[in-house]
Computed example of a mutant assay.
Amino acid sequence: MSETSSREPSVTGSSGADGDLALARRGDRAAYDRLVRPLLPELHAHCYRMLAASHDADDALQDALVKTWRGLGDFEGRSTLRTWLYTVATRSCIDLARARGRRAMPVDLGPASARAVVDDAPSGDVAWLGPYVGHARQGTTSPAARYEEREAVELAFVAALQHLPGNQRAALLLFDVLGFPAEEIATMMRTTTTSVNSALQRARATVTRRVPDPSQQATARRIGDRQLNAVVQRFTTALEHRDTDALIDLVTEDVTWAMPPMPHWYAGLTAVGDFAAQVPMGNCGSWRTLPTSVNAQPAVACYLRPDGAPSHGAWAITVLTLRDARISGITSFLGVEHFTALDLPAELPPIGQ
């Protein structure tokens, strides 16, 4: 991709950026930081899509930034700095994915459970897909990109990517999400344009089979903010009141509920209703909630206060997947670390205090 391409904003297109690049090549770290800082959100989102875990994305992005800093003296400017950063970051992601393996959701481990597993325990030997708490930015206005930036971090899309080999994953993201041309991707991935096009064809077939249509962004636009917020409010009210019937009234007949790192998951009204009644609505304790957003989808921060505890502690970030104005998927990511990433408090006082 040339530096004058309309599909890619040039980082080196202004005199200020050119000056910073010259300074950075001479070892000025502050100038380098000024150059890369505007690109960090979109690069981190790319690494998350590749790796499906924010902490892995952190590692890959840090590795890429160190490598580009150390190699800046050899950067010849035949592409934009942004292209070079994406090249290095993508290779770092492929290497990390190869070393750590693909990340999974409970649905990948086996069939749904027909009844609630009340003594379910976290599975520590599974590399779990994690939530994305950032704000995706791509920096491209290319009409050729198939996915909107928010669609490209939705849970279903990120989970589908994990079923692709690293080269297919990279080709799909670089072409369909970020708008790089196949010829440029071939250079970035040290392969041929024919190989890139072949990888794209296979990747699209896999993703199409696994990602439902319409996207969550299209669903949200169709039902509108008011109705979307009403669904979230009804869900939180049902949880806080421990009202299983109210929750079941909100969901589709084929609703699913998963709680990584718990390995069991549930599908359908009967199984989800049984799980809801026996676990979150059962003897867990009382709940408080805060609305939030994760993976560009509506989400609820769920705080649990077991009987006798002085406060509600961070328990799970629950992401809601909608079909029309009903909930078709509930994914509860357990762990206080997700609250920290969202700048949410680790505990809440009981209602009325």
Rank of each mutant, 00 (worst) to 15 (best):
I351T: 12
S286I: 05
G285S: 02
P345R: 07
H312R: 03
P306V: 11
Q353E: 15
L320T: 01
V300W: 00
G313R: 04
A346N: 11
Q297S: 12
S311G: 09
R305K: 09
H338R: 01
V336N: 07
I351F: 05
W287T: 01
T292M: 07
L344S: 06
A277L: 15
T331A: 14
G282W: 04
L344W: 07
Q297G: 03
T292F: 02
D307Y: 09
S293R: 14
Q297N: 10
T292I: 10
Q297K: 06
T331K: 09
P291Q: 11
L334I: 15
D307I: 15
R326P: 02
V300L: 08
F339Y: 01
P298L: 07
V336H: 04
Y303E: 00
P298R: 05
S311D: 14
Q297M: 13
L348S: 02
A299L: 03
P345Q: 12
I330V: 12
M281T: 13
A316G: 09
E337Y: 10
A277P: 03
P350L: 11
P310M: 13
F339C: 03
P350M: 13
P349T: 15
W287N: 00
G352Q: 11
G282N: 03
D307T: 14
P291K: 11
P280K: 02
T321Y: 00
T292P: 04
F275H: 10
G285V: 02
Q278F: 09
M281D: 13
S332N: 03
P298E: 05
G282S: 04
T318V: 15
G308F: 05
A296E: 10
S293P: 10
R326W: 09
H312D: 02
V300M: 03
D324V: 12
P306I: 14
F339H: 00
T340I: 14
A309W: 05
R326C: 12
T292C: 08
A346F: 07
E337C: 10
Q353G: 09
A341W: 07
T331G: 07
V336R: 11
R305D: 12
S332R: 01
R323T: 11
L348I: 03
I351W: 05
N295V: 14
S311T: 15
F339P: 02
T331F: 04
D307A: 15
E337L: 13
R305F: 08
P345G: 11
I351Y: 04
A341C: 09
A296V: 14
R326F: 11
